[in-house]
């Protein structure tokens, strides 16, 4: 039993790290644009298909395919933002959130129309797991784990060491002052949406690499992503990472300790408990 719990935690660590990538995208968009973009699931799906297109149809290596997943999903997010969500800015965050939900459904069906309903596997060899004692891990998991960590490190560097990254954090923290200091809100919003959507796309491709790309790839993630972001505190990037790790591990432990089909319930339960007990989440913004 001990080894199976450790194994489940290990699986959860990996799936949580992968989950963190789209969760960062989701929370970053919330931090700057102040609305939850529920299209993030479908955008992850678009990333998965863009990556699949690059890898299988165009024969690109995985590294380059990740690039297309990022760019494809990023552009789709930006287009959705400009065409559908932004025009509703005056109606408030709730309308924007509802609009993003609708955008997600439209995008999912565009994917169905373009690629069909079948699952599409990536051109990566399926390898047997590496075993150490009672534990096992797949080489793909290790690779995905590394990609997710690398991406987070890059994002950290971009946010902390570059002028634009600093402006993004400043805008998320205090948009009025940032504007007063000459930051153009439109530019920051566009970059945030592009990067946030791109991260969702890479998240979708990471999941699809381990399984396959299908029109619901991202939809399956959305509840976990949302739960992770709420748990960590909406708008907090470190919060999203920690939230994703916790959600990832809790989901795997559910399989062992409860029943696997309660996974969805766990996501909702986490959201409910956090919103009731500590609405600002683990790393939530300070009041006021």
């Amino acid at each position: 039993m001990v080894s199976s719990i450790i194994q489940a935690l290990l699986n959860g660590l990996v799936s949580g790290t992968i989950l963190a990538v789209p969760a960062i995208g989701f929370t970053a968009i919330f931090a700057v644009l102040r609305y939850p973009n529920f299209a993030i699931g479908s955008l992850a799906t678009i990333g998965a298909y863009a990556g699949w297109l690059a890898n299988v149809r165009l024969g690109w290596p995985l590294e380059a395919s990740f690039g297309l997943a990022f760019v494809g999903a990023g552009i789709a997010t930006l287009a959705a933002e400009w065409l559908a969500v932004r025009p509703l800015e005056k109606s408030g965050a709730l309308m924007m959130a509802i609009c993003s939900l609708a955008v997600g459904i439209v995008l999912e069906n565009i994917v169905r129309f373009a690629f069909g309903n079948e699952a599409r596997g990536f051109n990566v060899p399926l390898m047997r797991d590496i075993r150490f004692g009672d534990l096992r891990m797949s080489p793909q998991q290790v690779e995905n784990f590394a990609v997710a960590l690398l991406l987070m490190a890059l994002l950290w560097a971009a946010l902390n060491l570059t002028r634009m990254g600093r402006a993004m954090r400043a805008t998320a923290d205090n948009p009025d002052l940032a504007r007063l200091k000459g930051v153009q809100p439109g530019t920051v919003a566009a970059i945030t949406v592009l990067v946030g959507g791109g991260l969702a796309g890479i998240g979708g491709m990471l999941v699809a690499l381990d399984t396959a790309a299908d029109p619901l790839t991202g939809f399956r993630l959305i509840l976990s992503v949302f739960a992770a972001a709420v748990l960590g505190g909406l708008g907090s990037i470190p919060g999203a990472v920690l939230g994703a790790l916790i959600i990832g591990m809790v989901e795997e432990l559910t399989v062992l300790l409860l029943a696997p089909n309660y996974r969805t319930a766990i996501g909702f339960a986490v959201i409910l408990i956090v919103l009731t007990v500590r609405p600002s989440g683990l790393f939530g913004e300070r009041a006021g």
């Binding site: 199976s4 699986n11 381990d210 790839t217 399956r220 399989v255 089909n261």
Partner: peptide, 19 residues
């Protein structure tokens, strides 16, 4: 074993089956 078909990975479920 009733699993959640929306879960992106079924490793832990497969561990149960293997055991």
């Amino acid at each position: 074993l009733i699993y959640d078909d929306k879960k992106p990975s079924l490793r832990t479920e497969v561990d149960q089956a293997m055991r």
